[in-house]
Amino acid sequence: MLIIPCPWCGPRAEQEFHFAGEPKARPVPAEQVSDQTWAHYLYHRSNEKGAHRELWSHAHGCGRWFVMERDTHTHQILSTKAPA
């Protein structure tokens, strides 16, 4: 079970958080992008083994979303920061 340093609340247990996937830049204007670009945004993921950027929310805490860099192999947490 991870200890996650919420950028606003400090270290808290994993159960307070909710993982929501890799952050992907939304292609805009969406209506004008190709099916392929849209599919990449919706479905394709880097799925890194190692340092991996991911979006989390402190769902049972402050409710804020943040970007966490985490090693998906060792589960070491490398950084957390507010979403760009």
Binding site: H18, A20, P83
Partner: peptide, 13 residues
Amino acid sequence: LDQLELWHQTEYP
């Protein structure tokens, strides 16, 4: 609620 917060905090902050 999660969706609203997510869109607000990440896409339209």
